[in-house]
Design a protein around this nucleic acid. Structure first.
Lengths: 185, 185
DNA sequence: GTCTATATCAAGATAGAC
DNA sequence: GTCTATCTTGATATAGAC
């Protein structure tokens, strides 16, 4: 097999940045190609359509979060509070000061009402996220309470990302971190 | 002055619905014209550009919320909890089961990083919203706590709208209502 | 695997008749 | 105030040379 100058993974990483910053509809294939140092025509060698590219990106985000971030929630040998803190710190690196905020939240509000493919993957992302939080909360709270605390935390995170983007401050996100950790003694 | 068959206000109301459901970039002037029962050419008689139309819509939302919803927070003769409840019910009618969720949240995530005109108006909307909530909280909590509770509530609302859209359920929003009212004895 | 060239279509916006 | 017609641009996507 010949060495490929540009890999699918590199394109996915670059395209993710552009989509996160500019949004799905406002990003053109030309934008993406340019960002990858390719001509528009070359770009189609890797992905047959913008929709399929975005779907792959979202699936990629889903598995990245599962393996690199949410998996921390299941390291049961670590105490709940420390485990939550560890996960939040990792999560912060993915959300905090990322240009454009959270691709999952952005794409949900921009496309979830219209694109069933994206919607299915986004549901997975947020469900996995909620379940990870719940798995930690459940060690200190009842099943129902843990579920609601987890949902509440994720929703607050997304709201905080929105505020952070709008008011150009990371403080809102940091406050949510503090509040979430405050749920543990 | 001759009677106008279509008024600017009617267009703003219709366009708001379309933008909320389809998003800013994914909505075409043709979509908007059709929804208003006009030809594309006729539509430009009322608004010179899509951007200016959206800006007017957001300003309209801002003043609507201020006069019809957030003003409730300042009806100081009503007890804090009841006042909050009254405002939340009104807010629910604007956010709950509205096709497309919250135009302010949607437009923030879709455009706030790129369009300074929209961003300025959106900041006003969320600041006014936060201040209204704070005005009620401050009767029961300290200045700082009231500020953070207000921000937290608004952020949770926006996160809940996102979940409601994604999982096709109003429950998340209702839970936030309950939690917010729970802050009062 | 990358390029240039191009087909096709829809978008934002304008002109001018009625 | 509404219409039809049109201009111009930029979008997605494809074809085929290198």
């Amino acid at each position: 097999m010949p060495i490929t100058k540009t890999s699918k993974e590199e394109i996915i990483a670059e395209a993710l940045r552009v989509f996160r910053k500019k949004g799905y509809y406002n990003t053109s294939m030309s934008d993406l190609a340019t960002q990858c140092g390719l001509q528009k025509g070359s770009f189609y060698h890797y992905f047959p359509s913008k929709e399929i590219l975005m779907a792959e990106i979202l699936k990629n985000v889903n598995s990245y979060l599962n393996t690199k971030v949410f998996s921390i929630a299941f390291q049961d040998q670590i105490a709940p509070k420390e485990r939550m803190e560890k996960m939040l710190i990792r999560l912060g690196k993915v959300l905090l000061s990322q240009e454009g905020g959270c691709i999952a939240g952005n794409t949900t509000l921009e496309t979830a009402g219209q694109n069933t493919i994206f919607k299915a993957i986004l549901k997975n992302i947020f469900t996995d996220w909620t379940n990870a939080m719940k798995h930690i909360f459940i060690e200190v709270y009842s099943e129902n309470t843990a579920q609601r605390l987890a949902e509440q935390a994720v929703m607050e995170f997304e709201g905080a990302v929105m505020f952070s983007l709008l008011f150009d401050s990371d403080q809102y996100l940091k406050d949510v971190f503090t509040r979430t950790l405050g749920k543990f003694k």
